[in-house]
Design a protein around this nucleic acid. Structure first.
Ligand code: FES
Ligand code: FES
Lengths: 179, 179
DNA sequence: TTAACGCGGAGTGATACAGTCCGCGTTATG
DNA sequence: CATAACGCGGACTGTATCACTCCGCGTTAA
């Protein structure tokens, strides 16, 4: 698809719900079902965020995720690299050394340093990455919060907390023996 | 592979040889064999550059390509878009409307306008594209020319002209009846 | 007439993305 | 102490794109 994949969209949308500590410590399944995305797919994304130090994981029933740092210190670039692994914008094939007039033995001046075309692509990648580095989870959260009514975050936090509490309480979901 | 593909690398490296009119009007096969890349693959790239008005094609034997504009008016962004077709950096899946608390009927405030995360990606894409738009064929040619010895462009132009002339002249390549 | 050109369409193998399934060790609850 | 839900990792599937090939068509100078 695109260079920045759906994994990143899923990841950031989830992280936004972890900004407010009132959400508790939801599991990846909680966050997936809250947002109507695949739980098994989201479960492959969060370990990467954990290894990058963006999120902290808690084991066992009652386990889940919370931010490992203040949201103002988590940049979008950090998240993208954590999930996609610093994928380059352009991969040079080193065409320049294969010129027919070199006869399979390119001189040093043709292969040392970075090709002029490659350099242009690296500058474009740098511009993109600097733009992503300027945005943080906190700055996005502020924009999103401005758009939604005040009742919305409260409603979602209620949904999440209810789910987390329902994990081990008696009548949570459809039991085989009924209510 | 990467977001900006090998097609673009091939395309720009070829266009650089068209900057100097002394190269004549080489065919895509000429340019491919000069640079050790696949002729049939390069033949799929040039029609796109022609439709974008970057290059002019000439039909028939003795045909080939030449720049359609001065190299200072051909930006790298133009070339990338001509070859790849304005591929977006990020494709939003519109997660925001699928929140469980909406119950399959998202309100207007949740789906109008651009999502805050999508907006961040669009700004990054804009930064990348503006960086690419600042570079032209002429600016890259100047950098490349500075690196190579003066004899190199002359040598390549000789190689190209000889090939073009050899297309229909008598003893050009291994003929069935020999010299 | 021939040979090389540009152009378009169909097809191939490899890779990556989106998504699934399973089993492992961990941990509150009952 | 058994259970159920958790995080984690590996193997797996289907589809789309990329790099590349092959073919046939109409065009044009020798
Ligand atoms: S050799 Fe890769 S961009 Fe020039
Ligand atoms: S819904 Fe696609 S980025 Fe938010």
């Amino acid at each position: 698809m695109a260079h920045i994949t759906a994994r990143v969209e899923y990841g950031i949308h989830c992280l936004l719900w972890l900004v407010d500590p009132a959400s508790g410590q939801p599991s990846s399944r909680d966050l997936a079902e809250l947002q109507g995305i695949s739980p098994s797919f989201l479960a492959k994304i969060f370990p990467r965020l954990e290894k990058a130090g963006i999120v902290q994981a808690a084991d066992g029933i009652r386990g889940g995720y919370r931010l490992a740092k203040p949201p103002s210190e988590i940049t979008v670039l950090e998240i993208v690299d954590a999930i996609e692994g610093h994928k380059p914008l352009f991969e040079c094939q080193e065409i320049r050394g294969r010129c027919a007039v070199f006869d399979n033995e390119p001189p040093d001046w043709a292969t040392t340093g970075v090709c002029g075309i490659h350099a242009v692509m690296l500058r474009a990648e740098k511009a993109m990455r600097e733009s992503l580095a300027q945005e943080t989870l906190a700055s996005i959260a502020a924009v999103v919060e401005r758009k939604a009514p005040n009742s919305f975050p409260v409603e979602v936090q209620g949904w999440l907390v209810e789910r987390v509490n329902g994990r081990t309480s008696s009548r949570s979901r459809k039991l085989p023996n009924g209510p």
